[in-house]
């Protein structure tokens, strides 16, 4: 095989690392044939907006999953961050740019605590982030006293569409995706994530400060969760303590559909984006086809299993 071909294969070529992009294309073509309403500008923008929150959460989860970790707290942290934003800005009159920063910091702090519990506390990531899920969700309810808090107008505009074709959530999603791709491919932090997930002991014996890098990883996931929370709240024009319930699982599903391995060392920003789009397109399409919400859950479960199954088979064949 020539190196050019190998490079093309490695970069996933045109069809995505694990064929997920091909899957997305097939899905889009099928839905276009099945429903006249699918391939319209309005609907596609709608799909993009629906995918945005999941995708941003999933980008954060991609870091964690590459290090062979898991973060079950991102949904709750997203809700908490949004509540913190609304509470400081609306209830306490803090200027919105400051409130925005406070909300981001809240997300990052949650991530830092996760990282510290996992590294210094030696808790399994599953347990540490499950605990954080409870704490963050609870704190959001405590702060908001259980009811939605309206967002300041300036922030609520984040949910708007610029002109008629540029929804802000989609712009934020793309920006976060680009940041993720750069972090993963080009930065020290990103490259160490692959090494840690691939073989933590080898990374440590190569002088990588595993503890520090893992904490950074979870902090990044927390920061991304905060951004996702703010985008979600802006669409609803209010911060709801019960928002993003169970979104962490969608995020994990998107990462895995995108070709990452839960055992670590593998994963890409583009894959995750495609994974999130597949989930959004599927939900949208099933709605258009008037499939009941109950059956939608079944279909999505099957798709997740199929995506990973196909990937496993492909890899086994490659070996």
């Amino acid at each position: 095989m020539t190196t050019a071909v190998m490079r093309l294969r490695k970069s996933g070529g045109l069809l995505g690392e694990n064929g997920s992009l091909a899957g997305l294309v097939v899905l889009v073509v099928a839905l276009t044939l099945l429903s006249g309403d699918f391939l319209t500008v309005t609907n596609l923008l709608n799909v993009g907006v629906q995918a945005a929150v999941t995708a941003i959460l999933a980008f954060g989860s991609t870091y964690v999953i590459i290090t062979a970790g898991i973060d079950l707290s991102v949904g709750a942290v997203a809700a908490l961050s949004a509540v913190v934003l609304a509470w400081t800005a609306t209830s306490h009159g803090v200027p919105w740019p400051v409130a925005l920063i406070v909300a981001l910091v809240a997300g990052i702090v949650c991530g830092l605590v996760n990282g510290v519990l996992i590294t210094y506390g030696r808790l399994p990531p599953f347990i540490a982030t499950l605990a954080m899920q409870g704490v963050a969700r609870g704190l959001g309810l405590v702060i908001s006293q259980g009811s939605p808090i309206p967002l300041p107008d300036a922030v609520a505009h984040l949910g708007d569409t610029i002109g008629s074709y540029l929804p802000v959530p989609v712009i934020v999603m793309v920006a976060m995706g680009v940041i993720t791709a750069v972090v993963l491919n080009r930065t020290y932090a990103g490259r160490t994530m692959y090494a840690i997930g691939g073989n933590e002991e080898a990374a440590r014996l190569s002088g990588i400060k595993v503890t520090r890098q893992k904490i950074i990883t979870y902090a990044l996931a927390g920061g991304f969760a905060a951004v996702a929370g703010i985008v979600l709240a802006s669409r609803l024009a209010s911060a709801q303590p019960q928002a993003a319930l169970g979104y962490e699982l969608d995020a994990i599903a998107a990462v895995v559909i995108g070709g990452a391995s839960l055992s670590g060392g593998k994963g890409r920003a583009l894959g995750t984006l495609v994974g999130a789009l597949i989930l959004a397109v599927l939900r949208n399409g099933l709605n258009l086809l008037s499939v009941s919400a109950f059956w939608q859950q079944v279909v999505i479960g099957v798709v997740i299993a199929l995506a990973v199954l196909l990937d496993t088979l492909r890899r086994r064949q490659a070996n």
Binding site: Y194, A195, G198, N199, E201, A202, A203, L205, G265, K266
Partner: peptide, 9 residues
């Protein structure tokens, strides 16, 4: 394999 290399990289 266990400590020297990241086998999947």
């Amino acid at each position: 394999k266990g400590q020297g290399l990241v086998l999947g990289a």
